[in-house]
Every structure is written in C-alpha cells, then in structure tokens.
C-alpha cells in the first residue's frame, strides 16, 4: 500500500542575515535537516520534540506552506515537491492544517459562518450544499447553529479550536496536520478537543500528523511516533514500542522527564544537562552528543545512521543502539 504521505531527506535551511563581510559561506539555520518518514492512510503520526527542534517547520513543509531546500514529498504516491500554482491549490483540498493558537488563527472580522464557508467558496462547492455542509460541520464539532452569526471574540478558547477544526474539515481533506492543537487549552478543555479529534478521525477517515511537545498527549492520540532533535529524526516507530522501549538516549531522557501525576510511582530519572544547542550552529557528528549521557569519541566525529531496533520497524539513530536484523533476511 502506498503511504498517504511520504517525505525523503527533507531539508529546510533558512538563510541568516548576520553574514560576515567577505565570507563566502552563507550562514544558514538548519531548521529541518534531512528527515524521512511516511504516514499511512487513517493513522496518526505523532511528531514530538522540544521547542526549536523543527517539528512545526516539518509540518509546514509537508503541506508545502514552505518550500523545501532539498528532498522530496510524495502525496498519494505523486511527487508534489515542485508542484506550483493551480495544481498546488487543487492539492490543498486534500491537506489541511489546524493551528496552535485559537485566538490568532481566526479572522476577528468574520462571522463563524463566513470563516467555515470560505474554503468551500474558494473551491466552488455548490451553494445549495454549502449551507448543509456548514450545519453538519457545526454539529459534529459540537457547536450549535445559533453560533453561525457570531464573531470569534464571543467564543472561548476551546470553542475557537472547534471552529478551526470545522474549517479544516470543510473540504473533506484526507490529511490534517495538527500543529499543537491543544497546547493553548486548559486541561479539562484539552480532553474535550482530543476526544473530538479522535471521533472525527473515525467518522471522516482522517489521517493526522499530530505535532506536539506534550508527550502524554502524543502517546494518547498517536499510532506511531517520530522524535525530533535539532532538525533530525532520532527515533521513529510504533508508539507503544517507542514509549516502553526507547532506544535513543534522547528519547529515553525526554520520556523520563515527563512529570507523572502519580506520587506512588518512583522512577529513575535521566537529567539532561545543558540546553538545546543552536540550530544555526549545530554540533558535529551526532547532534545530541553535547547533552548525551553515554557519548563517546565516535559521537563527536561521525553522524550515526538509522538502525532498525525492533522487529516491527522501530528505527533509531544512535551509534550504541542495538540493531535487530529483520526476520527472513
């Protein structure tokens, strides 16, 4: 089966301004630095990492909201890396995005009706259908028809996020990139929105790329998870496998740092020292070696390759991860 979305060696380098006079090399910020992954129809891929690791940039590249520096993007088997103009516009029907900030992502001067109708208008959905679709969408995201005439400021954060979701679903997309959709919400509201997103996935057969920094939320909603560090994927695999048996020292540290709402549970904690290095000047070799508790000389010198670390295809990029040979080879 061809995956719905596939990216190969995807890179995004942003040029930096403060270039030294007469220097030949243009300084760049390597926001995304060669990631490869695929997303299958109907599944949720979680994309986690700390701030500045490039997870949002990766999401935007997948939608072609940003032009990649290098690499390829395939959507339903078709190479969309260099698709432009009208073709790209058509493509966007099938891929939508939900943003983090429910306050900034809605136009304050448009009623909810207008906001949700706009994508349908752009894609010439017949007028007779629009109204029906709008009512249905409001219903599925848990808003009532009276809300149509209201403006965004009249809604709470959770309700606004529901409006954002309704807008994203207006054109029956297949792929929805969710960029921190619940992190601005209160805990009790967060659960409502997560449940809603799960229900909608079943109802509309959606595929999610779920970008978040909250590891418990990602665990809850994802089938597979990809962990990013400084623009690179360090580990990817089935969510249960990665969380229960992380092979990359960064994944291990990240998971052990999650505060757990259970005072009885004593755990061993791996405290990372230091901060995230700057993506404008990343360390050599393995990018994690400056904070890694098990770093050796080889880590400074050589970037690790991806190793298959479980029978089910969990992959990790670490010199010291134990490789599992796939059966039948």
């Amino acid at each position: 089966m061809t995956p719905l979305l596939e990216v190969n060696h995807l890179k995004k380098h942003f040029p930096l301004k403060n270039q030294e006079l007469f220097s030949r090399e243009k300084p760049v910020l390597k926001a995304v630095d060669g990631i490869s992954l695929s997303v299958n129809t109907g599944e949720t891929l979680g994309l986690v990492g700390e701030s500045g690791c490039g997870k949002s940039t990766a999401g935007r590249l997948m939608l072609k909201l940003l032009e990649p520096t290098e690499g390829e993007i395939y959507f339903k088997g078709q190479d969309i890396t260099s698709v432009q103009g009208e073709q790209l516009r058509k493509l966007r029907q099938d891929m939508q995005i939900i943003f983090q900030d429910p306050y900034a992502s809605l136009n304050p001067r448009k009623t909810i009706e207008k906001t949700i109708m706009e994508p349908m208008k752009i894609f010439n959905v017949p007028k007779s259908e629009r109204q029906k679709k709008l009512d249905h969408l409001l219903d599925v995201v848990g808003l009532s028809p009276q809300h149509k005439e209201r403006y965004p400021h009249e809604f709470s954060g959770g309700q606004r996020q529901r409006i954002g979701i309704a807008r994203a679903l207006a054109l029956d997309p297949e792929l929805v990139i969710c960029d921190e959709p619940v992190s601005a919400l209160d805990v009790s509201i967060q659960a409502q929105v997560i449940n809603l997103m799960e229900e909608l996935q079943d109802e509309f057969n959606l595929t999610y790329v779920f970008i978040a920094h909250d590891l418990s939320v990602v665990y809850h909603i994802s089938d597979r998870v990809a962990v990013m560090y400084l623009g690179e994927l360090v580990e990817i695999g089935d969510v249960h496998e990665v969380y229960n048996n992380p092979q990359h020292p960064y994944t291990q540290a990240l998971l052990s740092a999650v505060p757990e709402a259970n005072p009885d549970h004593e755990r061993e904690r791996i405290l990372l020292t230091g901060d995230l290095p700057s993506p404008a000047n990343p360390p050599t070799g393995c990018k994690f070696h400056t904070r890694c508790p098990i770093a050796q000389n080889i880590c400074h010198a050589e970037a690790p390759r991806y190793k298959r670390v479980s029978e089910n295809g969990q992959m990790a990029a670490c010199h010291f991860a134990k490789e599992v040979v796939a059966q039948g080879t």
Binding site: V187, I189, A191, Y219, H220
Partner: peptide, 24 residues
C-alpha cells in the same frame, strides 16, 4: 477527579479521555 481523568496518561492500555463537559 474530572481533572485527573482528563489528562492523558502513559499507561500500557489507552482509554478514552473522560473530559469535563462545559467550560470554566
């Protein structure tokens, strides 16, 4: 109790989150 049930937990089985209805 509602708050505790509405936070996702990293446990072997996944449960549906029990959200608190309504808004603050």
């Amino acid at each position: 109790l509602g708050l505790m049930n509405s936070i996702p937990k990293i446990t072997p089985e996944k449960h549906k989150l029990e959200a608190i209805d309504g808004v603050p």
